[in-house]
Design a protein around this nucleic acid. Sequence first.
DNA 1: CGTGGCATTGATTATTATCAAAGGAAGTGG
DNA 2: CCACTTCCTTTGATAATAATCAATGCCACG
Lengths: 233, 233
Amino acid sequence: MSHHPTKGQCLSCSIRPITIFSTLDAAEVEQIQAFQPAIIHYDANDIIYHQGMEARYAYTLRQGFVKIVNTLADGRSHIVQLLRAGDFFGFGGLSGVNYKHSAIALTSLDVCRLPLADLLKLKQTHPKIEAEMTKRWLERLHRAESMLVELGTKKAAERLASFLLRWCAGNAPDTWVALPLNRAEIGELLGVTIETISRFLADWKRQGFIGESRGNIQILDAAGLRQAVAIEG
Amino acid sequence: MSHHPTKGQCLSCSIRPITIFSTLDAAEVEQIQAFQPAIIHYDANDIIYHQGMEARYAYTLRQGFVKIVNTLADGRSHIVQLLRAGDFFGFGGLSGVNYKHSAIALTSLDVCRLPLADLLKLKQTHPKIEAEMTKRWLERLHRAESMLVELGTKKAAERLASFLLRWCAGNAPDTWVALPLNRAEIGELLGVTIETISRFLADWKRQGFIGESRGNIQILDAAGLRQAVAIEG
DNA sequence: CGTGGCATTGATTATTATCAAAGGAAGTGG
DNA sequence: CCACTTCCTTTGATAATAATCAATGCCACG
C-alpha cells in the first residue's frame, strides 16, 4: 500500500468542476482549503477502506477506478458500485460509525480525502455543497436501483452485454476502452460465474461483436451484440 | 382510485415521530403546517405516481404498504423497494423532473403529500429536516445495495427465505404477519418466477417451517428454514 | 525458463424458467 | 344460498440456463 499524502490545492484542482465543490466561488474554495484535504495515491488492489472499519473519511476519486464491495458473513461478496473520476464515496459514514462496504482500488489511482467531521461542517454551512452531495446520493441510489433491475430481470448474457455497452457508452464505436476488471470481478458485479463470463465473451469475440486486448475492450458491433442477447437470452 | 384529500394536521399527526419532521419543535411544526400537506387515501392497486410522470410531490406513507416498481422498455418490471409506515418516497423528483419509478399501493393506505417545491424550501431553511432526509436517503441506498447483494450472490430459495425472515423480523416467532404481496409480486421483488416461489413456499409449509393464511404468514421454525436453504441452496 | 495467476473449454449436474393443466378461494349475480 | 366466473396458486413435465468440476492453455514476470 503506497500512501503519499499531499496537501490538496483546491483552487488549482483540475477535477474540481466535477466534484461536490464544483459550484463554489473562489472565496469559498479558500475556505475548504482550510480543512485538511489530502491527496493520496493507491496502487491497484490496495484497500482504501474496509467494511466494518470505523468510518472517518469521505473520498473523491481524482483519477482511476474503485470497486465498492460488500462481503457477506459466509465470505460471498458482491461489487455494489464501480466508481470513476469525480465520484464521491465513503459518505456512508455520515449515517453510521462503520463503513458498510470495502473500497478497493482497481487501478493505480489518486483520491482526495476529507475527514467526515469536516465534511459534515462544510455541508451544514455551505448549502451549495449540501446540494451537490444530495445530487450525488440520489444519483448513486438511482444507479443501485437500476442495477437491481438488471439483476432481477435479465439473464447472464443480457446483463453482461448491457454492462459492456454501458461501460463503453459515450465512446465512439470501435474505440478501445480500459476495462480494469478481471473475469472474477465482472462476475462479482453481475452475479455470474467466471466461466459463464468467459464463455460469452469468447463467443462474442469470435462473432466479431467485441474485441479485447490486455484489459481493454472495444465494441465492434453494438447492434449485433444487442440482437444476440435478445435472441439467446 | 379514491382520493379524499384532507388538510394534514401536523401538530397532532400520530406518525410524525417517525417522519422527516420528527425532530422539529412545536413552533417549527406550525411552519410546515403552513405549507399544504394533504392526507390522501388510496385503495390497493391504486397508482400513487407513475414512472415517467412529471414529479411534483413527495410522500410520507402514514399507514399501509407501497411497492416502488421500475419497468423496462420491453415491459419487464422489478420491485425496487417495499415501503411501510413512516417511509418517505417520491423524492427522486428532487433530482430530475420525472419520476423514475411507479409507486403502487399494495394495500388500502394513507399518505401525506407535500409539493416538492415546498419540500425543497423546507429542506433549505430547516437543517433538521435536511438532516432527516439525508438519513433516509442513505438508509434507502443501503437497503438497495443490500438487495443488490441478495440478488447477486444468492439462489432463489435463499433469497426467498431471507426475504421472509426479514419481513417477519421484530415479531415474536409464530406471530401472524401480514404479507400484502402475491406470488407474482414476490417474484418481481426477488427476480424469480411465480412457480418457483410457489414451490418453495408449499415445500416449507409442508415441512412446518412457515404457515400461511389469507395474506398472512408466520415463521414457525426459523432455524429449520435457514438450514434448509443452506443445504439445498 | 519455470511458475503462478488468469482465462478458456469441455463435460456434467443443478437450478430455474417455461409450458401446460388442474385446483382452490373469493366474489357476483341470479 | 348456490352456481359461476375469475383470479391466483399449485403441481407436473420438460427445456433452458448457468453452476460446478476438471483440465488445459496462455501469458507476464521474476
